[in-house]
Simulated scan of single mutants.
Amino acid sequence: MLLTPVDNSAIVAALAAALDGGPAVLPLSADDPRAGELRSAMAPGEPTLPGTAVVVATSGSTGAPKGVELSATALRASAAATHERLGGPGQWLLTLPANHIAGVQVVVRSLLAGFGPVLRGTRPFADAVRSMTGPRRYTSLVPTQLVRLLDDPVGLEALCSFDAVLLGGAAAPASLVDRARAAGVRVSTTYGMSETAGGCVYDGQPLDGVRVRLSDGVISLAGPTLASGYRRDPVGTSAAFVDGWFRTTDIGELSADGTLSVSGRADFVINTGGVKVAPAAVEAVLAEQAGVAEVCVVDLPDAEWGQLVAAAVVPVDGSSPPLVDDLRAAVRARLGGPAAPRLVRFVTALPLRGPGKVDRSGVRDVLRGS
């Protein structure tokens, strides 16, 4: 049996009970047009896996939504490892939707630290920060939120007061992280997913108890933060969770000191004229260029090349964007001619889905002009 709260206050109360052995929670958002579809797909009246405290419904952007079942043990282990890495328990400011894993974990961490999380709601960021009372203060952001706060002097001042700021939900350009740290923000990048109870690798280093391995470049993760499996999907569970390891769909590299760098999705490459191009690599180069705030690279169908490399770019200054030829030249110099985007379009914002994740289907629509 699943409780299905749809507002942040109700989700907080339900999560507090679930952590202490109460009914499992399927957090939803009243603002999500798919809330009814997700509730139906997760079948709240049917039993959960043993020990389940939370079911996180994935966005289902590439197919039917999945329900990731997480135990209270996994949530507690993740929260404890996070606080250990950051310097001790503290109060958290919730700026993300509480129906996604990043928001769920903000709530869980704050509850387990003995504080209620501060819910930002519609308040200005600085006002919400001023209402915090914990001895240590933390928050979790997605890159788009960080960009906006860096551009807001009042918001930036408030952000600099945090003992740590976690940055996840989407790949963060190194230039953005460098800019934030130069401004005095104590930011740590995170890597993880619903299946690992959220971020489990901080600044490339696994949290205590988390293990990382690569097989043909594909990342697998293990440790006490892993989910129990997928709701009502024993086949999918047995395929993804094998011998205590969760096989992701991401590719990466491990340095000699064990630092993990994530290159992108193993199942997303662009085949242009017979040459395979990794969109994440192109995005990384473009994001480093002067005048680029955000970027997303996708494929578009093309009669001659099969697929085109296409880029949607949010400029720092919309009235004076960087030169397209300069952007292409930077990619060509680093990654070779086939990787240079044949189409570049400047946009005011990237379409999003979920907490800061870029909607690549929406980007394709934008680039097609639809």
Rank of each mutant, 00 (worst) to 15 (best):
A256L: 08
V242S: 01
P322V: 03
L300V: 12
L308D: 03
L335K: 05
K276H: 04
L300D: 14
A303Y: 13
I251P: 00
S263R: 11
L254H: 04
A303N: 15
A329I: 01
A333F: 00
L323A: 14
P338F: 12
A280W: 09
T249S: 02
P321D: 11
T249G: 07
T249E: 05
A287M: 12
T248E: 13
L308W: 06
L327N: 02
V344P: 05
V324F: 05
Q307D: 04
V269D: 04
D317I: 11
S320D: 15
A330T: 11
G291S: 06
G306T: 04
G336K: 00
A312R: 03
P338R: 14
A239M: 02
L323D: 15
A266C: 07
A303L: 14
A281G: 10
D326N: 14
A311D: 05
S255V: 06
L260M: 11
D317W: 14
V297N: 10
V242R: 02
V275S: 05
D250P: 08
L260N: 11
V297A: 15
T272S: 15
A256E: 12
E283R: 13
R342Y: 12
T237K: 14
V314T: 06
S238Y: 01
K276L: 09
S263V: 07
T248M: 05
D267H: 05
G318D: 15
D243C: 00
F246M: 01
D325A: 15
L327S: 08
A339Y: 14
G318Y: 15
G274S: 00
P279A: 11
L300T: 08
A290T: 08
L260H: 09
A280T: 05
A303M: 07
K276Y: 01
P321W: 13
A330K: 10
G291V: 05
V314I: 10
T249D: 08
V295P: 04
V344D: 05
A340K: 14
V277D: 03
V262A: 01
A278E: 11
A239I: 01
P321N: 07
R328C: 01
N271Q: 13
